[in-house]
């Protein structure tokens, strides 16, 4: 049995070496297909992170009536924090609001002339962040129906409704379409790999026929091809990982760092993600390489 596997492996590696160009082409095509899958997986991750970042920015402000005391406001804040789906509630006092307003408009002299520090017309408010923008209406409704009804004069929901709606729809659309696109691309990549291996084996169909005629069993013929296919996969995985990392350092990292999703709470491209990508590629490459070889030899084994 040992001798069987030794010979299988020897035959696989020598097949790889002696079909030099063809092997190389197969490896490169597989690398490209793997890159396609990886780039898409990364893109999905970036899109997901962006959507999360956008969702995190969607919040709602509840403005208090002027008569409301700070302790009443703090009680409502505690109540709001208990509601499911609420991630963060911030109390913004009238003074905080003014400070922020002045800071935001410090370059506009005209406005500053109108607004005077003594007559603060800005109401205090609660700023509420939620896990999912779809929950906003429900949460606001719940607060208003409860104790909030007496205390709150106005919410930002009315102003932001359209924007939130748009963002939600856009997010959903992007996620759905990227999933479909990912599936299509993965299928294409798999077909490319399968066809490439089929062609390399097609060029060696005579070899298979000869092996059969000198009395080789089907599996004795098949294993070297399967291992060769898997070898393509391993080399292609390494190549594509190197290319991906170089591409990441050169193109993606500066972009991510500078603006794209800097608002996301956690870094997008973690070591864990790279390990996931490597594992994904290796599994895809090994399985597809092996299975393609198996299928491709099957056809020529009927002698």
């Amino acid at each position: 049995m040992l001798i069987f596997w030794q010979r299988i492996f020897r035959s696989a590696t020598s097949g790889f070496r002696r079909n030099g160009w063809l092997s190389l082409v197969a490896v490169f095509i597989m690398t490209q297909a793997l890159l396609l899958i990886s780039i898409f997986a990364s893109l999905n991750l970036v899109i997901g992170a962006s959507i999360t970042a956008i969702n995190e920015r969607i919040d709602v402000a509840l403005f208090f009536k002027e008569t409301v005391t700070q302790s009443e406001a703090m009680t409502l804040k505690t109540q709001a924090e208990q509601i499911e789906g609420v991630t963060q509630v911030t109390y913004v006092s009238s003074q905080d609001a003014l400070d922020k307003f002045l800071a935001d408009h410090r370059n506009r002299g005209a406005i500053l002339d109108v607004v005077s520090r003594d007559e603060n017309f800005l109401p205090a408010s609660l700023e509420i962040k939620v896990t999912d923008p779809y929950l906003i209406e429900g949460i606001v409704g719940q607060i208003i129906r409860g104790d909030g009804g007496k205390l709150i004069s106005q919410t930002s929901l009315e102003d932001n409704q359209k924007l939130i709606e748009k963002l939600r729809n856009f997010g959903g659309f992007v996620q759905r379409s990227s999933l479909i696109l990912a599936l299509v691309l993965i299928i294409i990549a798999l077909l490319i790999i399968f066809n490439t291996i089929r062609i390399t084996i097609f060029t060696r169909r005579e070899e298979i026929e000869i092996m059969k005629l000198v009395g080789a069993t089907d599996w004795y013929i098949r294993w070297p091809f399967i291992i060769e296919g898997m070898l393509y996969g391993v080399i292609a995985t390494i190549l594509s990982l190197v290319l991906l990392y170089v591409g990441y350092l050169a193109l993606v990292k500066p972009m991510v760092d500078s603006y794209l999703i800097s608002a996301a709470s956690s870094p997008v491209f973690t070591l864990g993600f790279f390990i996931f990508l490597a594992a994904l590629q290796l599994v895809v490459a090994l399985v597809v390489g092996g299975v393609s070889s198996y299928w491709a030899t099957r056809k020529h084994l009927h002698v």
Binding site: M211, L213, V214, G215, A216, T217, D218, Y220
Partner: peptide, 17 residues
């Protein structure tokens, strides 16, 4: 396959690997 190992065959087109 085992049966074929008991018979030697030579072909017009040689059939070498």
């Amino acid at each position: 396959p085992y049966y074929r190992r008991q018979i030697g065959v030579v072909f017009q087109d040689f059939k070498l690997l």
